[in-house]
Design a protein around this nucleic acid. Structure first.
Length: 890
RNA sequence: GGGAGCUUAGCUCAGUUGGUUCAGAGCACUUGGUUUACACCCAAGGGGUCACUAGUUCGAAUCUAGUAGUUCCCACCA
């Protein structure tokens, strides 16, 4: 079989992905094996793949593939999220481009557009994941708004309502004037901004020349002022108590009230109160029975209640009102000021606190098991520092505002009852309220049960469904259950088998949005945790630590990267430098390194595969020894990998296998067994090499699925349906630590020879002689054939004392001498030896100091003391050797 | 304002319970090499007072306290 000299990732990746799909290797059904389950953090249905997804999904795939090769029944469930507000914003913009305003459409018409958009762009991102090699069970593709998931959401809403956990209330909520919807607290991002502090003078009513000065960052809100507040302790304003002041421009008379909330130190010590547009003012307003004047429309323009600037935008009004206040003479001064302003996570609009009727979920009881089981490590966070953050949030949780004034999403299953006019006439008139039910049919029944009069004589009624939809996260919090249909059919075989899932891989920025809430839902609906481990990835940033963003143009297109470096190369690049919870500083040198590694593996394979095998020659001793050594090495590496994976140190695991392939396998093993130019290799060594290569590929497969499959298929004749991805990964076996340590000494001796060649400018081709003065450590005669081959030695001889006229080096207490006719620079050699001697003496000194310290000898464990004694003996013999050598040279 | 974390080589980070080379890895850097698998390579090498200070201990990168710097999370000071 001819092996191409260059590995071409593109065609190889396409070929094997198709092969895996055709053979249904990704597909999982419940069986007798141990399940290993991951649910994907569902990306936005209309989103495109970005670097964060790459990192995240690479890790998921590595874990899934590894579990599969460990003999588990791995199931990685893919899917997408309808992303209510983000998708709706996109559709609204799209319509706007076509000159269509959302509000000119009916709800049904708008949803038609939204579905069209979803079908057009939906799932592109999942197709992109295939390019990465993601081994998802595509037959299980789920969508948060498909039938099964939608019904689950509705069922849960009804259930929570019945449990008394969902309620409707008028509250101060975070209002996004751009999307015209309420948001949860988590969807508001506070940012520091440079703004101004405006000092405004309010005339005291009835006192022509007496003014009260307040400070505000939002002068436009004075139009909604219904009081001015002072601290009751404030001596400066004693005379104002009980008086009233006039709001500038509109001259509304408002009372001066007293509340200890006011900080006397800040600003002027006087605070204007706008209960409709500030959460604190709202609370003060409640305490003092103040009127609320809502001066804003839903879109952030001023309403009629503002009296002036009606219909103009709040920020335009801010400019204008400052000018008008100045004209009026009520603007005292303006200062620069830095404060924090809330922005909408999705639309980046400045949030307006607004009073409105919304649906809430009571959290206090629900969070209890979720908090407890993270704190006691039933669910483990990696890295564990996120436990603190989680705890803090859970401990201070407020009720969750779950309604959104949007159309794209799960419409709230609440029906308001409008009785027929005959029923509302006269004394029978009453508010029939609403019912909560999974369908209109159920709602109708329920309404009749609740109000029998509706079905009675002169009855009849209509139902109007609540316009709002549910927060996106109200569907994704059910994800680990709902993808197995465990909400609608709580005891089905699938959910019983796959749930709880194994590992969740996600970014820390959605720890509250999603992770915490999934845990809550898990305990509420399955009575157990939704996943055993949560691995938090870092943020992908650029080399300057800046966030990847479109506007900065520092975010590479993942698909371009895959084209350029191969999926394997990109996967390796993502992971080479990505500790759990730590940010990944990405630049193209990383995937470059990854693809370089792929080339390295490819070339190693070509080397081996192209050797001619000769059955008649015997296996050389050095090959036999090297193979045996590498077997032990591989077992050590396998154990190390197991340990890394157990601790979710994925980068370290990759680095382990990376250096094993590059240094141990290619650098040492292959160099040792490599036959002379154009010479054949013995059959024994060849067969064993192929087997070891096979083992290595299996260990590597989860990281680099494509190239490992390609090589594995080339390695031997394979039958249709065979694949490395369904083979077993090597188990950790015992290994000989002494052997491995001895081999390190051999390597060091070879390095010593190489170093001398480099220093003395001796080409590798030139053969050398080596004399060995064996000390009590550092030499292993059994490996002399290896030393001889890699050192290119003609003759090796053991000697009892130092050899004159040679250059030398040491491994532990063994001296190696290389005779170099005419090439010895005695001065140089002496200088080197003196330095070594100086170091050894210093070292001995520190050891002696320890050993002569009675406290140390008496208190330290015996083993530690013995070790120090051994060090002392070794160093002393080394010093002796050095001194002899120096004397000899002189 | 409250809380948590971090500070180890030029960069990004390991370093598990204090005790053998524990002062490490990858990248970067320096030097040498076109040794027929690989220059996307190979060989050799330089580089750190483990932020600072004080303590505990026979012994501290590791434990304690404080200081400085830094990051993140939470919080409605106009």
């Amino acid at each position: 079989m001819e092996i191409p000299s260059k590995y071409s990732s593109g065609s190889v990746e396409e070929k094997w992905y198709q092969y895996w799909m055709d053979n249904k290797f990704f597909h999982s059904v419940p069986n007798e094996k141990e399940p290993y389950t991951i649910v994907i953090p569902p990306p936005n249905v209309t989103g495109v793949l970005h670097m964060g997804h790459m990192l995240n999904n690479t890790i998921q795939d590595i874990l899934a593939r590894r579990a599969r090769m460990k003999g588990k029944n791995a199931c990685w469930v893919p899917g997408t999220d309808h992303a209510s507000i983000a998708t709706e914003a996109k559709v609204v913009n799209k319509l706007k481009e076509k000159g269509v305003d959302k509000y000119d459409l009916s709800r049904e018409e708008f949803l038609e557009h939204a579905w069209e958009w979803t079908h057009l762009h939906g799932g592109i991102i999942l197709e992109q994941l295939k390019k990465l090699g993601a081994s998802c069970d595509w037959d299980r593709k789920a969508f948060t708004m498909d039938e099964a998931r939608s019904e689950s959401v509705i069922k849960v809403f009804v259930d929570l309502y019945k449990k008394g956990l969902i309620y409707r209330g008028v509250r101060m909520v975070n209002w996004d004037p751009s999307a015209k919807t309420a948001l949860s607290d988590e969807e508001v991002i506070y940012r520091e901004v440079q703004s101004k502090l405006y000092y405004l003078k309010y005339q005291v009513e009835g006192e022509e020349n007496e003014f009260v000065t307040i400070a505000t960052t939002r002068p436009e809100t004075i139009l909604g002022d219904t009081a001015v507040c002072i601290n009751p302790e404030d001596e400066r304003f004693k005379n104002l108590k009980g008086k009233r002041v006039l709001v500038p421009l509109i001259k509304r008379s408002v009372p001066i009230i007293e509340d200890s909330y006011v900080d006397m130190e800040f600003g002027t010590g006087c605070l204007k109160i706008t209960p409709a547009h500030d959460i604190n003012d709202y609370e003060i307003g409640m305490r003092h029975n103040l009127e609320s004047v809502d001066i804003f429309n839903d879109d952030g323009t001023l309403s009629e209640k503002a009296q002036i600037y009606i219909g103009e935008d709040r920020f335009a009004v801010r400019e204008k009102i400052v000018a008008d206040l100045e004209k009026e003479g009520t603007l005292a001064k303006i200062e620069d000021y830095t404060n924090k302003v809330g922005f909408s996570e999705r639309t980046d609009e400045v949030i307006e606190p607004k009073l409105s009727a919304q649906w809430f979920l009571k959290m206090e009881e629900l969070v209890k098991p979720a908090l407890e089981n993270v704190m006691n490590d039933t669910i483990q966070f990696h890295p564990p520092k996120f436990k603190n953050i989680y705890k803090h949030w859970m401990g201070n949780i407020k009720d969750w505002c779950i309604s959104r004034q949007l159309w794209w999403g799960h419409q709230i299953p609440v029906w308001y009852i409008s009785p027929s006019p005959t029923l509302t006439k006269g004394e029978g008139a009453k508010n029939y309220g609403y019912v909560v039910a999974a369908s209109e049919e159920d709602a109708r029944k329920l309404a009749l049960e609740k109000h029998p009069s509706l079905g009675g004589e002169g009855g009849g009624f209509s139902l109007t469904r609540d316009d709002d939809v549910l927060d996106t996260w109200f569907s994704s919090w059910l994800w680990p259950i709902s993808v197995f249909d465990g909400i609608r059919k709580p005891d089905n075989e699938e959910v019983n088998y796959y749930y709880p899932t194994s590992d969740l891989i996600t970014a820390p920025d959605i720890i509250f949005f999603w992770v915490a809430r999934m845990i809550i839902a898990g305990y509420e609906y399955k009575n157990t945790f939704p996943f055993k481990n949560v691995y938090f990835t870092g943020m992908v940033r650029d080399a300057q630590r800046r966030k990847m963003s479109k506007s900065l143009g520092n975010s590479p297109d993942p698909l371009d990267l895959i084209k350029k470096y191969g999926a394997d190369g990109v996967r390796v690049g993502m992971l080479l430098c990505s500790p759990a919870g730590g940010d990944l500083l990405f630049d193209e040198s990383l995937p470059q390194q990854g693809s370089g590694f792929a080339t390295k593996i490819w070339n190693s394979f070509r080397l081996v595969k192209n050797w001619e095998v000769d059955e008649t020659i015997e296996q050389p001793l050095h090959s036999k020894l090297a193979i045996n050594w590498f077997r032990n090495k591989l077992n050590e590496v396998t154990a190390t990998l197991d340990d890394h994976f157990e601790k979710f140190r994925i980068s370290d695991a990759l680095m382990t296998i990376y250096t094993t392939v590059r240094d141990e396998f290619s650098g040492w093993l292959l160099e040792i067994v490599k036959p002379a130019y154009q010479q054949p290799i013995d059959a024994n060594t060849y067969a064993e090499l192929i087997e070891l290569f096979d083992q290595l590929l299996r260990l590597l497969h989860p990281f680099m699925p494509f190239i490992t499959e390609e090589i594995w298929q080339y390695m031997k004749e394979r039958k249709e349906g065979e694949s490395i991805m369904v083979e077993r990964i090597p188990e950790a076996k015992k290994f000989d630590k002494k052997l491995l340590a001895a081999f390190e000494d051999v390597k060091e001796a070879i390095s010593g020879i190489r170093k001398i060649r480099l220093e003395k400018n001796i080409p590798n081709k030139e053969e050398l002689e080596l004399f060995i003065q064996i000390g009590n450590k550092g030499y292993h005669k059994e490996f002399e054939s290896i030393l001889s081959k890699l050192g290119n030695l003609t003759n090796m001889e053991e000697v009892k004392e130092e050899v004159k006229g040679t250059t030398s080096f040491r491994v532990k207490s063994t001296n190696f001498y290389i005779p170099l006719s005419n090439l010895i620079d005695t001065e140089e050699e002496l200088k080197k030896l003196e330095e070594e001697l100086k170091y050894a003496k210093g070292f001995l000194n520190s050891v002696n100091k320890k050993l002569s310290n009675e406290h140390f000898v008496n208190n330290a464990p015996e083993a530690v003391v013995n070790k120090e004694k051994a060090k002392k003996a070794d160093t002393e013999s080394k010093i002796k050797v050095l001194e002899e050598r120096i004397a000899g040279l002189k």
